[in-house]
Design a protein around this nucleic acid. Structure first.
Lengths: 147, 147
DNA sequence: ATTTCTGCAAATGCTTTGCATTGCA
DNA sequence: TGCAATGCAAAGCATTTGCAGAAAT
């Protein structure tokens, strides 16, 4: 995997320790953290890091396409450095977000879905976002225990 | 179509003018308004109507299943009285939200998609939300004019 | 040297809350 | 009448902004 510094440089944005740190956190996890979670994770190693900087940084990373922003309803905005098209499962109990890779969005696109949407609505479509809402394995267990 | 008052009564919630008004607005439009839009629409006829009441009302209507809440990213929370499963197209320029009915979610469910998600992630899935992001016909024209 | 980023604090804006009053059942 | 909903103002929270100092190119 290309190192974080190189990746940022490729995108022609200034390379700062804060940006490397935020992007590294996102590259190293599959947990789709929100800004607060990123901040908490970084604080021990970067005591001077400001929450506002995390906000500004995810914004920059999003704009250059290094990360994607997920709007998961009550769970707020989450960030994901895995930018290949894929869908997500959201746990309505603990707000956990998992990747779903077995339903590849490319396949849906291949099925002429974008074209179909265009025919119906006149919209030109660039992207799609698919969410599955339900309960993660851990929360299912908890719910069963409480019966 | 059943009248608004009857529908509310069926759901065993208190029938008030404010609730009827909010629900009527949502039944009469396909524009997926947010709270602010609902409020503005009602203000001329209900000058005493408070924004807080609109917030509380959409919450109640959502809980009894009369409307659904759509989380459309930057456009915030939108409300829709059309609760049959369907997907949505979101205009990244003007925030307009259109229904997409030609891609029925039932069909996706029939394709064992929920089962597939469960096999991959362990999540039990109750619902899905599909968004198409792009530009609506009007905004496409505007963009072309400015070239 | 210049431009951009960071960190702080203040400001913003959307949403929620508390509570006295009103209104539905 | 009793309980729930409304409307107002205040509070709450996540996010954004302005700006002086710091850092990257």
């Amino acid at each position: 995997m290309q190192n974080t510094e190189e990746v940022l440089r490729t995108k022609k944005i200034k390379v700062t320790p804060q940006r490397m740190a935020v992007y590294s956190v996102l590259r190293d996890t599959r947990s789709h953290p929100n800004v607060e979670m990123i901040y908490k994770k970084l604080k021990p190693n970067y005591p001077a890091m400001s929450l506002a900087t995390v906000y500004k940084t995810v914004d920059v990373l999003k704009k250059v396409g290094l990360i994607q922003e997920l709007n998961v309803g009550e769970g707020g905005l989450r960030y994901d450095a895995f930018v290949e098209p894929h869908s997500h499962a959201y746990c309505e109990s603990c707000s956990r977000v998992d990747d779903v890779e077995s339903i590849p969005i490319e396949k849906i696109q291949d099925n002429n879905l974008f074209k179909k949407v265009r025919e119906e609505t006149g919209f030109t479509v660039n992207a799609t976002q698919i969410f599955f809402y339900g309960f993660c394995p851990e929360c299912q267990e908890k719910i069963e225990e409480n019966v």
